[in-house]
Design a binder for these strands. Sequence first.
DNA 1: CTGCACCTTCCCCTATAGTGGAAGGTCAAG
DNA 2: CTTGACCTTCCACTATAGGGGAAGGTGCAG
Lengths: 129, 129
Amino acid sequence: MRIGEAAAAMGMTTKTLRFYEHRGLLPTAHRASNGYRDYGGETVARLDFIRRSRVAGLTLAQIGDILQVRDAGGTPCAHVRDALARQLTGLDRQITELVALRATVAEYYDAAAAADSVSCDSERICSLL
Amino acid sequence: MRIGEAAAAMGMTTKTLRFYEHRGLLPTAHRASNGYRDYGGETVARLDFIRRSRVAGLTLAQIGDILQVRDAGGTPCAHVRDALARQLTGLDRQITELVALRATVAEYYDAAAAADSVSCDSERICSLL
DNA sequence: CTGCACCTTCCCCTATAGTGGAAGGTCAAG
DNA sequence: CTTGACCTTCCACTATAGGGGAAGGTGCAG
């Protein structure tokens, strides 16, 4: 299976597959006699795992850690649980921050909408902010 | 007022001020005879506006647009209102996406926490994802 | 024989908001 | 006269996940 087929099968680009190899998410690909990468079913399964992990918002670095555990012969479940827990914590923090920022911006915006003719003195650039 | 003083007064670094100048947020600074940048009160006011805008989550590009309107002699209030509106829309979209992702991850995590001894077949890498 | 689709490596670019550090100039104090 | 605290410019680097495009090799169809 050449890189283009594998990429098409996963809905990825060949660039992405080479990039994953470069990042260590895919092992050094087996080469055909003409130098072309030759992928087997296990690579496609690996790509599928990467995609599932990406859907869960894991970074390539986190995914790489999990794959390393698997490649070392271990069962990465504990690692995955940790990654998911960290992911949840991070998401909660991000959401909290964004909601707070939204409140700030909404306050500014309401004030801006209420003040019809604002005296923007040039010293302050704009009094709405 | 030299760059270090101005930066200290705003709680910024000299790097940041030079960067803002490079990005066009600050006009080309007036130079003293020794080549040092020499800032006046209007630059500090401008920096303060930049900081207020950044607190509202505006990007440097958006802030630059507003400053350009002001520098062209206009009143940037309408521009500011637009920027705030776009900011609100963007934040809502981001928050929605993050909340959805959080739900997805929480689902995975709950499943991972519930399944004590999961049969992680190596083909799937890890069945938790 | 030539075109076309596919593959290879390589390096640079995207967007964001700066930060780090090198090499060198300036100025007041000791 | 030198030390130290400033200042100057310029180049590279941070993190993220690839994308763009050049220059060249491979293989099959017409």
